[in-house]
Amino acid sequence: MIILAATPIGNLGDVSRRLVEVLESAETVVAEDTRTTQRLLKALQIDNRPRLIALHDHNEKQRAAELAALAAESDVVVMSDAGMPTVSDPGYALVVEAVAQGVTVTAIPGPSAVLTALAISGLPTDRFTFEGFLPRKPGERRSALRALASEPRTMVFFESPSRLADSLSDLGTAFGDTRRIAVCRELTKLYEEVRRGTASELVAWAEGGVKGEIVVVVEGAPRRAVSADDALDQVQELVASGIRLKDACAEVAAATGLSSRELYQAALAARTR
């Protein structure tokens, strides 16, 4: 089988007993960076020396079929440098191929930068969306943020420290400067830090220079109080701009709290008048 193994995102003490037991007997470990995995095995004082195979963004598609076939014969442990494989890390293509080949896929749960940042952010945790890394190019990043401006769920992003100030500035432009934001830095490490504030407040801090691994948690858009008629007008405007009726209803429903199904039915009824 394929065993997706979560590894520490900072503090070595977060390693689970189950992970240690699996690594002590593993024959094959597929790793994002074999050097990082070797250091982890040494730090955990594991004497076992499994076969290490590199799997990263540049070779995953080419090696997925081969590794899935290998996992059909014996267990293959898959590890990223930190956190859970497949979550903004290599492993997704391998899982897809394993499922296609009928190979069992399981996981050893453990540390997650996404859930850790969300939990300590002080922002709503009942509904959230993980958006991964924002685009590097300014124009693409701004476009991506504009598309999320009406997202009502709490949003979680990864970001490079070198781009943090620019991304926060773009976020403030797209979302306005009233949204609550938490920037979580170096989670579980010695210098863990959480900065909370609005985009403009956090830009002023980030422009001074920030180091380490960054997770940004952003408050979702407030729902707008609108009448059913106004909501239907919004749906019709979106449809007129080229958006499918179903998608337009879903977007307006998310922003207003109204029923997407009822909006859809009202829009269909309006077409027959």
Score class of each variant (00 low, 15 high):
residue 8 P to F: 11
residue 85 P to E: 06
residue 217 V to T: 05
residue 80 S to W: 02
residue 180 R to L: 07
residue 134 L to M: 08
residue 120 I to C: 14
residue 159 E to I: 03
residue 113 A to C: 04
residue 86 T to A: 14
residue 268 L to S: 11
residue 49 R to P: 04
residue 29 V to P: 05
residue 201 E to M: 02
residue 243 I to A: 09
residue 143 S to C: 10
residue 130 F to M: 07
residue 139 G to L: 12
residue 49 R to K: 14
residue 51 R to S: 11
residue 228 A to T: 06
residue 223 R to N: 00
residue 47 D to C: 01
residue 235 V to D: 02
residue 73 E to P: 00
residue 174 A to T: 06
residue 12 L to P: 03
residue 63 R to M: 15
residue 144 A to F: 06
residue 186 E to P: 06
residue 262 E to P: 03
residue 105 V to A: 09
residue 161 P to S: 13
residue 184 C to K: 01
residue 131 E to D: 12
residue 206 A to E: 13
residue 3 I to F: 02
residue 126 D to G: 02
residue 235 V to E: 02
residue 34 T to G: 08
residue 108 I to M: 05
residue 95 V to R: 05
residue 69 A to N: 14
residue 47 D to K: 14
residue 265 Q to E: 15
residue 82 A to P: 03
residue 264 Y to K: 06
residue 136 R to V: 08
residue 175 F to P: 01
residue 150 S to R: 09
residue 3 I to S: 02
residue 269 A to R: 14
residue 259 S to D: 12
residue 76 V to D: 11
residue 257 G to R: 10
residue 79 M to W: 03
residue 77 V to C: 08
residue 5 A to D: 01
residue 8 P to W: 10
residue 219 E to C: 04
residue 233 D to Y: 00
residue 210 V to I: 14
residue 56 H to Y: 13
residue 135 P to L: 10
residue 238 L to H: 04
residue 244 R to L: 04
residue 119 A to E: 01
residue 81 D to S: 12
residue 74 S to T: 06
residue 21 E to G: 05
residue 204 A to T: 14
residue 75 D to F: 00
residue 30 V to C: 15
residue 218 V to C: 02
residue 98 A to G: 08
residue 272 T to M: 09
residue 38 Q to K: 13
residue 263 L to E: 01
residue 268 L to N: 12
residue 240 A to Y: 04
residue 240 A to E: 14
residue 173 T to Y: 09
residue 213 E to A: 02
residue 235 V to C: 03
residue 264 Y to V: 08
residue 261 R to F: 08
